[in-house]
Simulated scan of single mutants.
Amino acid sequence: MTPDFDLTGTGPVLLLLPGGAGHPMGLGPLTARLARRFTVVTYDPLGLAHGRLGEPVPDQRPQDWADGADRVLAAVLPPGERGYVFGTSSGGIAALALAARHPARLAHVLAHEPPCALVLPDGAERRRELIAALDGPGRPPAEGPDATPMGVFLAHVLHPFTAYVPAPALARLTLAAGTDSHGQLPYRAAQFLADGSLLELPGGHLGALEHPEEFADRLAEALTSTSVGG
């Protein structure tokens, strides 16, 4: 079964992998800007924006999001063409898994601040700190009528995704981080994985929401350039 997704714009296919629990909330301005140049495919891996928020959700794995993303690309790509991919935060981790597992449909993958904590020398400690900072008392519900995307993220995405250690990419891959994120765990993880070729994008960890037009223009330039990343 093909997972839920939305389509807008015209041009080469660009698959967006949102952060958090995969709910695309807040990405409208970024998507609208990118749709001037791409057919933007916004992947909703858990269907939270398509009527399934509040339903039971098992613990998630980056591999499963990647496999779903490949099925989405199979459904939307014209025969013989490859797609661009952008993932941020937990979506960036899914993008790394996609680049390792399903390279055949990929033209260029850009992973923005994937918080793969365990790749860092001090990653286990930093991961504990991150989880403690985010997942404290008062967690919003993950199921039922009052469920929230943040509740789903904290209950079923945060722990398994931050423990993910990426396999080598088999597709063209660029790692990116925000200009305002220096020293933070997601920036450090991206920098470590980039191995000296990190791309900086506007804003911080939420740069795609904070500076959508500038972020979109820089993202489009990086994805389509023959000299950036990869």
Rank of each mutant, 00 (worst) to 15 (best):
T2L: 08
T2D: 08
P3Q: 06
D6A: 15
G9M: 11
L15D: 00
L15A: 02
L16T: 11
P18H: 06
A21H: 01
G22D: 02
G22S: 06
H23K: 10
M25W: 13
L27G: 06
P29C: 07
L30S: 09
L30N: 05
R33G: 02
R36H: 09
R37M: 06
F38P: 01
T39M: 03
T39W: 01
D44G: 02
L46V: 12
G47Q: 04
L48K: 02
L48H: 05
A49S: 13
G51C: 14
L53E: 04
D59F: 05
D59R: 11
Q60Y: 03
P62S: 10
P62C: 13
Q63Y: 01
D64M: 11
A66T: 11
D67M: 07
D70F: 01
R71W: 03
V72Y: 00
V72I: 13
V72H: 00
A74V: 10
A74P: 01
A75F: 00
V76I: 12
V76C: 08
L77V: 12
P78H: 01
P78A: 07
P79G: 14
G80P: 08
G80V: 13
E81M: 03
R82W: 02
G83Q: 12
Y84Q: 04
V85H: 01
T88D: 03
S89T: 09
G91N: 08
A94Y: 05
A95M: 09
A95G: 08
A99C: 07
A100I: 09
R101M: 10
R101E: 08
P103V: 15
R105S: 08
V109W: 05
A111Y: 04
H112F: 15
H112R: 07
C116M: 15
V119R: 00
D122N: 12
G123I: 13
R128D: 14
R128T: 13
I131V: 15
I131S: 02
I131W: 00
A133H: 06
A133W: 00
G136D: 10
G138N: 09
P140G: 05
P141S: 13
G144V: 15
G144H: 13
T148Q: 04
G151A: 13
G151C: 12
G151D: 08
F153E: 09
L154W: 02
V157R: 03
L158V: 10
T162D: 06
A163V: 08
A163F: 04
Y164S: 08
V165P: 00
V165R: 14
P166D: 08
A167P: 00
L170I: 00
L170A: 14
R172D: 13
A177Y: 06
A177M: 07
G178T: 12
T179F: 01
T179P: 00
D180W: 07
S181M: 08
Q184Y: 05
Q184R: 15
L185S: 07
P186G: 06
Y187V: 11
R188W: 02
Q191K: 10
F192G: 05
F192K: 08
L193D: 03
G196Y: 05
L198I: 14
L198K: 07
L199N: 09
E200V: 12
L206H: 13
G207M: 06
G207K: 01
A208K: 03
A208E: 10
L209I: 10
E210K: 04
H211S: 09
E214T: 15
A216I: 11
D217Q: 12
D217K: 10
L219C: 09
E221T: 14
A222R: 02
T224D: 05
T226K: 01
V228A: 03
